[in-house]
Amino acid sequence: MHTAADLGALLDHLGAVDAVALSARLPAGVRRDVLAEGLPVGPEVRRAVVEWVVAHGAGEDRRALLGGPEPEAEADVLAALADVADPGLRTAVYLHPDASATLRRQMLAGGPGALPVPDELRTVLLGARSRQLLGPACGAADPELAAHAARVVRGPRRQPPPQAPDEVYAWLRGLFAAMPADFPGTFPELLATAAAATDTWPSTPTIRAGVPAWIP
């Protein structure tokens, strides 16, 4: 009995056209197992299979791309699914733990040709208190969403979180200074951890790239 990983490896050994043709002919249940657990890793074949699923697959195929019980969907898959005009799927993409703040901001930004924010997602966000979910909504085209996010997403002393790299650095330095004397860590470790773990600040890539030069 071939596993999803075996079939995914087989797809990797085929050209993009043949991999798509085989994916289309697999029994539905087997194909969804492959999409959830054995997606090809070769970039050309992977891109071709994902594009076929987005354009021609059933809704269950697209949801399978989000993964199984412990999903680890990758950025390219989530970005492709975010452009599908399926409100339930787009809600699942936004709420997916691997969805980046950048992708979430794009999904809420509006503009010509943009897909509307799904009603289900809008309801979830208006009732949310999570900075991770609401940080990207601060610039949402929907004024009610943006206002709710602005009320919830706050930094120290109820001020908006800093944006510029030097402001973020100063904020983290102040945070570290307020730590108890027995805090088991150093400021460079705190700075590196914050830069690696947070992408709700537009300046975070700059911070991450500049961490070595900024360590006092």
Rank of each mutant, 00 (worst) to 15 (best):
residue 11 L to A: 08
residue 179 M to I: 00
residue 18 D to A: 15
residue 149 A to F: 09
residue 157 R to T: 12
residue 123 T to Y: 03
residue 117 V to Y: 08
residue 144 E to T: 14
residue 109 A to K: 09
residue 46 R to H: 14
residue 15 G to Y: 05
residue 18 D to W: 07
residue 102 T to H: 12
residue 153 V to G: 01
residue 173 R to I: 00
residue 135 G to E: 10
residue 10 L to K: 10
residue 131 R to Q: 13
residue 161 P to W: 12
residue 156 P to T: 07
residue 150 A to P: 05
residue 6 D to H: 13
residue 146 A to W: 06
residue 14 L to V: 00
residue 21 A to H: 07
residue 77 V to P: 03
residue 184 P to R: 11
residue 111 G to P: 12
residue 122 R to I: 09
residue 188 P to T: 09
residue 72 E to A: 15
residue 139 G to Y: 07
residue 206 T to S: 13
residue 170 A to K: 07
residue 80 A to T: 07
residue 203 S to P: 00
residue 66 L to R: 11
residue 83 D to L: 13
residue 100 S to L: 00
residue 50 V to C: 09
residue 59 G to H: 05
residue 40 P to F: 08
residue 113 G to D: 01
residue 110 G to E: 06
residue 119 D to W: 01
residue 148 H to T: 02
residue 192 A to G: 12
residue 132 Q to S: 14
residue 101 A to H: 11
residue 24 A to C: 02
residue 51 E to Y: 01
residue 139 G to Q: 11
residue 149 A to S: 05
residue 156 P to W: 00
residue 169 Y to C: 06
residue 19 A to M: 07
residue 208 R to L: 15
residue 152 V to M: 12
residue 14 L to T: 04
residue 211 V to I: 11
residue 157 R to I: 07
residue 99 A to F: 00
residue 76 D to W: 05
residue 158 R to P: 00
residue 96 H to C: 06
residue 43 P to H: 07
residue 11 L to F: 04
residue 60 E to V: 07
residue 150 A to R: 13
residue 16 A to R: 09
residue 91 T to Y: 10
residue 183 F to W: 13
residue 163 Q to F: 04
residue 131 R to K: 10
residue 189 E to R: 13
residue 139 G to C: 08
residue 37 E to M: 14
residue 131 R to L: 15
residue 5 A to I: 14
residue 74 E to T: 14
residue 208 R to Q: 11
residue 19 A to S: 11
residue 77 V to D: 06
residue 1 M to Q: 15
residue 199 D to G: 12
residue 21 A to Y: 00
residue 115 L to H: 04
residue 134 L to Q: 04
residue 31 R to K: 07
residue 14 L to W: 01
residue 88 G to V: 07
residue 74 E to I: 10
residue 181 A to F: 12
residue 7 L to K: 10
residue 212 P to S: 05
residue 30 V to N: 02
residue 170 A to M: 01
residue 20 V to G: 00
residue 73 A to N: 05
residue 121 L to Q: 06
residue 75 A to L: 13
residue 79 A to G: 14
residue 133 L to M: 01
residue 164 A to D: 05
residue 153 V to P: 11
residue 68 G to L: 09
residue 125 L to Y: 01
